[in-house]
């Protein structure tokens, strides 16, 4: 087993274990902090897939942006000690329905992944992806790019309007 394989199993385990903590933890803050490791593990998997830009974007957006906002929100909106913050099972019916749906989905996904013939191209040293991503974003996908920026602008204006003092 070479280093890359070892690293893959490490990041995969990191992602899965802490993903489990996110789902099963009763304390929302613990779940939020576990997301840190999950996101980081996913970023590591991206690096192993030679998607360097995507990996760093993952850290930037998810850890630096979304996770910080989640934690900020949780801390601002609940009692400061975090005692009241609970998530998880509420009733038996919910658990049963959720369990059945998840099990069905899992069976479907496993079936699909086992039966599909995955095309495997030989591994090539991809090098840096930044230039290629930048070029396609500003040529082929310019419309989506601009639409996303418009969306963000509208969101900023809306947030500023809501937060404004009357």
């Amino acid at each position: 087993m070479d280093l890359i394989t070892l690293a893959f199993y490490f990041f995969a385990a990191l992602t899965l274990v802490f993903g489990g903590v996110v789902v099963f933890s009763k304390n929302i803050m613990h779940a939020a902090f576990s997301l840190l490791f999950t996101f980081f593990g996913v970023a590591g998997l991206y690096v192993l897939l030679q998607a360097d830009f995507l990996a760093i974007t993952q850290i930037m957006i998810y850890i630096g942006g979304i996770l910080v906002l989640i934690i900020f929100g949780v801390m601002l909106t609940t009692r400061i000690t975090g005692v009241d913050v609970k998530s998880g099972a509420s009733g038996r019916i919910q658990i049963t329905v959720a369990g059945i749906v998840s099990a069905a989905l899992a069976v479907l996904l496993i079936y699909v992944s086992l039966t599909t013939v995955w095309p495997q191209s030989p591994v090539a040293e991809a090098g840096s992806t930044v230039t290629a991503i930048g070029n396609t974003m500003l040529t082929k996908y310019i419309l989506a790019f601009e639409a996303a920026s418009m969306l963000l602008l509208i969101a900023i204006v809306g947030a500023a309007f809501i937060a404004r003092k009357k």
Binding site: L36, F40, D52, F53, I56, T57, I59, M60, I63, G64, G65, V68, G127, S128, V130
Partner: peptide
């Protein structure tokens, strides 16, 4: 790496 500056900036959030 080619995304060094971006990396430094992202990793600061940790």
């Amino acid at each position: 790496i080619d995304v060094g500056l971006f990396y430094v900036f992202a990793i600061g959030s940790i």
